[in-house]
Simulated scan of single mutants.
Amino acid sequence: MSITQQYVLDTYRARRNGEPLPPAPGAHDWQVVRELRDHRQFRAVLAGRPAHGRIRRALSRLLHPRRRPTTG
């Protein structure tokens, strides 16, 4: 059974029983993404890592490595 078919069945049952309709599939996807981002930032702070700009900083290190002074 697909997600759409399950949603139609749940909607039918809810209307028949006088219950509130379930949310449509995908209605809360962006909220879940935001909560996941917030959770990852929270975990980073607890671990003592910076919460913002970690990916950009890592890419910057890969693309522009520091030149180490040569001793001689």
Results as ranks from 00 to 15, higher is better:
residue 46 L to P: 04
residue 48 G to Y: 07
residue 13 R to D: 06
residue 51 A to D: 06
residue 25 P to S: 05
residue 36 L to W: 11
residue 56 R to I: 11
residue 59 L to G: 05
residue 56 R to M: 05
residue 26 G to C: 09
residue 62 L to Y: 11
residue 37 R to P: 00
residue 26 G to E: 02
residue 9 L to G: 05
residue 10 D to M: 05
residue 12 Y to W: 11
residue 24 A to V: 07
residue 47 A to Q: 12
residue 53 G to Y: 08
residue 58 A to W: 04
residue 13 R to Y: 08
residue 59 L to N: 07
residue 8 V to A: 03
residue 62 L to T: 10
residue 55 I to G: 06
residue 9 L to N: 09
residue 44 A to L: 15
residue 3 I to K: 00
residue 34 R to T: 10
residue 16 R to E: 12
residue 13 R to F: 11
residue 27 A to I: 03
residue 23 P to G: 05
residue 10 D to N: 07
residue 12 Y to K: 09
residue 31 Q to E: 15
residue 57 R to F: 05
residue 33 V to A: 13
residue 62 L to S: 08
residue 51 A to S: 15
residue 25 P to A: 03
residue 66 R to C: 06
residue 44 A to N: 14
residue 61 R to D: 08
residue 48 G to A: 07
residue 42 F to R: 15
residue 2 S to L: 06
residue 68 R to W: 10
residue 8 V to R: 00
residue 36 L to M: 12
residue 49 R to V: 05
residue 53 G to C: 08
residue 56 R to H: 08
residue 65 P to D: 11
residue 15 R to M: 14
residue 29 D to G: 04
residue 9 L to V: 00
residue 16 R to G: 02
residue 66 R to S: 11
residue 14 A to N: 07
residue 27 A to R: 14
residue 5 Q to M: 02
residue 7 Y to H: 08
residue 38 D to C: 13
residue 5 Q to P: 01
residue 55 I to M: 05
residue 23 P to S: 12
residue 19 E to N: 13
residue 38 D to L: 15
residue 24 A to G: 02
residue 20 P to M: 04
residue 45 V to W: 09
residue 45 V to T: 14
residue 34 R to S: 08
residue 63 L to G: 04
residue 16 R to H: 11
residue 39 H to E: 15
residue 40 R to F: 14
residue 11 T to Y: 02
residue 12 Y to V: 01
residue 5 Q to E: 04
residue 28 H to S: 10
residue 52 H to F: 14
residue 48 G to R: 12
residue 66 R to I: 06
residue 11 T to L: 13
residue 52 H to R: 13
residue 38 D to Y: 06
residue 63 L to K: 08
residue 26 G to R: 11
residue 14 A to K: 06
residue 4 T to C: 03
residue 30 W to M: 10
residue 8 V to D: 03
residue 21 L to S: 02
residue 18 G to P: 07
residue 22 P to F: 01
residue 23 P to M: 01
residue 53 G to D: 09
residue 60 S to P: 00
residue 9 L to H: 10
residue 38 D to T: 13
residue 30 W to C: 06
residue 4 T to E: 05
residue 11 T to Q: 09
residue 37 R to Q: 07
